[in-house]
Design a protein around this nucleic acid. Structure first.
Lengths: 235, 235
DNA sequence: GTTTGTGAAGTATTTCACAGCC
DNA sequence: GGCTGTGAAATACTTCACAAAC
């Protein structure tokens, strides 16, 4: 068996972009697309797209077998089949049940967000530690206490958790989710959390996103203030 | 003048994490921290923290001058002063006015989110193209039509735009913001948008975040289904 | 003629490891 | 003894460039 090096995480991330772009092309009725055209639409080089996709090609080490790519030379990639294979790789062909922890303002907005459901992500259980909200309904679910989390996760086969609690409770809730067997976490709490290697976390944090842009704005200002000598750092 | 290579974007991104961790340490009353301890808290190597910070040290090319770091050898980094310098670099010591485009469910939630204001980000103008909402108040602002955007941005000195419109309107709104002089965009529309090099965009997209995790969940399942032969791809 | 798939080359980023300082 | 700051080494990622396929 060929030594299989792990696929860079950034490739997986970009794969989601390819899926979205291909879905859009499919809606447009386009049936074939070249890496050049796809790259133009996504603002990246054609080589990167081809290289990224090549990570997923079956490599038979045996007798004279050749690699089987998604595309056809001289033509490009068939939109439908390529999209289907990417969706398959990403696990987008099934529905994913999710557990939501924290049902305040943000949590309620998440529970009611139709975009998740449209993409196959369904909140099937909601938890909070405030006794005043436990037992109340939210978007068709009854809010449960945290000590029922473990049992719900096991019974409903939940692998994804959404954390929508204040920063102060973030790590504690994440520890709880992990101890219940959750291995993928969408974290809205504004904290840097610790998880073992085997657990994936994605932080949704608009503040951090803004702060990573103001650096460039501040630099621009300084450059202007510094006068005509500092023209080069314009990016 | 020393040839100044641009600082990697990923370093700027991590700097926001250092700022948050240092602020937390300050609240805890800790006055000095080593790169080792900070790395432990953030889940990264001490060397990376030191290297990242070193990008911002003043390098005097002149006579026998030496670089001046943030830390003190044998001791570590003084929490207060280091935090102050990082906040300064990131441009977090001032308030940033922002323009919000799209005042539907999501847009209203953004306008009313106190977290932005606490960190110095203030929505000072709101726009929509639906005639039914134009003129209505949202969180103390009057919703304006899109064709007033250019004038408002100029008059109020706005450099940051928030896009909270449907995917179909995303690119169009972003083009409008850029033509009005906006150079930093927080994009909630679920589309991959095109911008010139001089404009920064950060996408807030929980769907993409989830899709980039299900890959690992799906692989785990496949590995199990494939049986005992495929143990190595465990993350 | 066009376009893929991919080793090889080129960049970029991370980690090492140690001199210098406290 | 402990810790920073930083060139150098190691690793990771991107782009090139071209043979093979259509």
């Amino acid at each position: 068996m060929v030594a299989e090096q792990p696929i860079p995480e950034v490739v997986i991330w970009r794969l989601t972009g390819y899926a979205r772009a291909l879905a859009y092309l499919q809606q447009e009725g386009v049936s074939v697309v070249s890496s050049q055209e796809l790259g133009r639409r996504l603002g990246m080089t054609p080589a990167q797209i081809r290289k990224d996709l090549s990570y997923f090609y079956a490599r038979e080490p045996g007798v004279g077998a050749k690699s089987v790519g998604f595309g056809k030379q001289g033509t490009g990639y068939s939109v439908g089949p390529t999209l289907e294979r990417i969706r398959d790789i990403l696990g987008l062909t099934q529905e994913w049940p999710m557990a939501l922890v924290g049902v305040g303002r943000l949590g309620r907005a998440i529970a009611g967000y139709s975009g998740f459901l449209e993409e196959g992500f369904r909140v099937v259980a909601a938890f909070d530690e405030d006794p005043k909200v436990i037992g109340q309904p939210v978007d068709g679910l009854i809010i449960q206490p945290l000590d029922e989390l473990r049992e719900s996760v096991a019974r409903q086969g939940i692998q994804i958790g959404i954390v929508a609690v204040p920063a102060s409770a973030g790590q504690r809730v994440i520890n709880l989710l992990i101890s219940a067997g959750i291995t993928a976490i969408l974290n809205y709490a504004p904290v840097a959390v610790h998880v073992p290697e085997s657990v994936k976390v994605r932080n949704v944090d608009p503040i951090v996103a803004l702060q990573s842009m103001t650096y460039y704005l501040a630099q621009g200002r300084q450059a202007l203030q510094a006068g005509a000598t500092a023209q080069q750092r314009r990016d």
